[in-house]
Amino acid sequence: MRKVRAVLVTAVVVLGTSLTIGATPAQADGERVAGIFRYEPDCERVGTQGVNQDWWNDYECEWEGRYRYFFLYA
């Protein structure tokens, strides 16, 4: 019974995470979500690193209040 419960809990967590990720806001101008961060300095650091590594040309860190996270759009 413990193993079954552990498997069910894991499945529920994975399903909840996938639904949350699928509900991220979309940008109208075609930018994609390149990261989700709790703190703005982390978002800015990764955005700058992406520009320096030629992963993207530009980026924007936006606070999404309904999710309470910073979204990195690139």
Rank of each mutant, 00 (worst) to 15 (best):
E31R: 10
E31P: 01
R32G: 10
R32M: 07
V33F: 00
V33K: 01
V33Q: 04
V33A: 11
V33N: 13
V33T: 14
A34M: 15
A34L: 14
A34R: 05
A34F: 13
A34W: 15
A34C: 15
G35A: 03
G35M: 03
G35S: 04
G35Q: 12
I36W: 11
I36N: 02
I36D: 02
I36T: 12
F37C: 00
F37R: 00
F37T: 00
F37Y: 15
F37P: 01
R38F: 11
R38P: 03
R38A: 06
Y39S: 14
Y39W: 13
Y39T: 12
E40W: 06
E40H: 09
E40C: 03
E40V: 14
P41N: 06
P41T: 01
P41S: 06
P41Y: 02
D42P: 01
D42E: 15
C43A: 07
C43K: 05
E44S: 06
E44F: 05
R45D: 01
R45A: 07
R45S: 06
V46Y: 04
V46C: 01
G47Q: 01
G47D: 04
G47L: 00
G47W: 00
T48L: 10
T48K: 09
T48C: 00
T48A: 06
T48V: 05
G50Y: 01
G50P: 09
G50K: 02
V51W: 01
V51H: 02
V51K: 07
N52K: 13
N52Y: 05
N52W: 03
N52A: 14
N52F: 03
Q53T: 09
Q53I: 02
Q53N: 14
Q53C: 02
Q53F: 06
D54S: 13
D54P: 00
D54R: 12
D54G: 06
W55G: 02
W55N: 08
W55S: 04
W55A: 05
W55E: 05
W56G: 05
W56A: 08
W56M: 07
D58Q: 05
D58C: 01
D58W: 03
Y59G: 08
Y59W: 15
Y59A: 08
Y59I: 04
E60W: 07
E60C: 01
E60P: 01
E60K: 11
E60F: 03
E60V: 10
C61D: 11
C61W: 11
C61V: 06
C61N: 12
C61G: 14
C61L: 08
C61R: 07
E62Q: 09
E62G: 03
E62D: 13
E62N: 09
E62A: 10
W63A: 14
W63Y: 15
W63M: 14
E64K: 07
E64S: 08
E64M: 03
E64Y: 09
G65I: 12
G65F: 10
G65E: 10
G65N: 11
